[in-house]
């Protein structure tokens, strides 16, 4: 495996008495697709916000290419090459699709004409060529989510953190999204996905990390993780887990 580019080292985040993340550690190698899963309230989004520095972690370090980034600002993180999207889309609804992508493109292209060219090139890649002049707020939810990725893609990131890209999408759209993610991976971008939609994440993730109650309970390939006792217990509860065990035991 290639060298780890992003290392999450013992991250802890508290909200008052609530431990949102507790000593979470894992590392991400260049070119990987990492899935971050767990039941509601497991601390996935908190961890995301810590990595992208919207929250400052109470303990632990986040190393990107060896440098500790845990105390930086979100804008600095983006400039270093870590882009993110949001669980609830945060596109600029009053602006057109082109303008939305241009805002991202301006990071590396100061001049208006360069940014426009970059935005149109990006729009092409994400299938927005026809929709460049539409107000972003008029797009469908799946288009809005894709626009958010296109926009951050225009900042030319090395790592993309995608927060629930597939939530609320239909099967067709989920398939398109997975294709898009694979395309991004092939372009050399490392991806971390927070996801609830298992049929979307499981086929494409190299590794899956499972959080529950703020702690990492499992890590491994999708196959390993779905058969992990702790994971099944986290998703279905102790009771159901025990029943399932009881039922399957005689068969073995």
């Amino acid at each position: 495996m290639t060298k780890d580019m992003l290392i999450i080292d013992n991250i802890t985040k508290r909200f008052g008495g609530l431990m949102a993340n507790q000593n979470v550690s894992f590392s991400i190698a260049e070119g990987e697709i990492i899935g971050l899963i767990g039941p509601n309230g497991a601390g996935k989004s908190t961890l995301f916000n810590c990595i992208s520095c919207y929250y400052n972690a109470d303990g632990g370090r986040i190393l990107f290419h060896g440098a500790d980034i845990s105390k930086k600002t979100p804008e600095a993180i983006c400039r270093m090459g870590i882009g993110r999207t949001f669980q609830i889309v945060r596109i600029f609804k009053e602006m057109t699709v082109r303008e939305n992508i241009m805002i991202g493109a301006f990071l590396k292209h100061v001049k208006l004409c360069d940014a426009t060219a970059k935005a149109e090139e990006t729009a092409d890649l994400f299938g927005f060529t026809e929709k460049l002049d539409l107000p972003a707020g008029s797009l469908t939810i799946s288009d809005q989510k894709r626009l958010e990725v296109a926009r951050v893609f225009a900042t030319e990131p090395k790592v993309l953190l995608l927060d629930e890209m597939m939530a609320g999408l239909n099967i067709q759209e989920v398939r398109e999204t997975t294709d898009l993610i694979l395309k991004l991976r092939d372009m050399g971008i490392t991806l971390v996905l927070v996801e609830h939609v298992m049929e979307g994440i499981m086929p494409i993730a190299n590794r899956v990390i499972v959080l529950d109650y703020g702690e990492k309970i499992a890590e491994g390939t999708p196959d390993e993780v779905v058969n992990n006792d702790k994971v099944i217990q986290a998703y279905f509860g102790k009771k159901y887990h025990a029943k399932r065990r009881g039922r399957t035991a005689p068969l073995q």
Partner: peptide
């Protein structure tokens, strides 16, 4: 463009390095 982005969504703008 950056000013308009800030007006529309501060957190969104920050995520794009502004």
């Amino acid at each position: 463009y950056y000013c308009r982005a800030i007006k529309e969504d501060t957190d969104g703008a920050r995520s794009l390095g502004i």
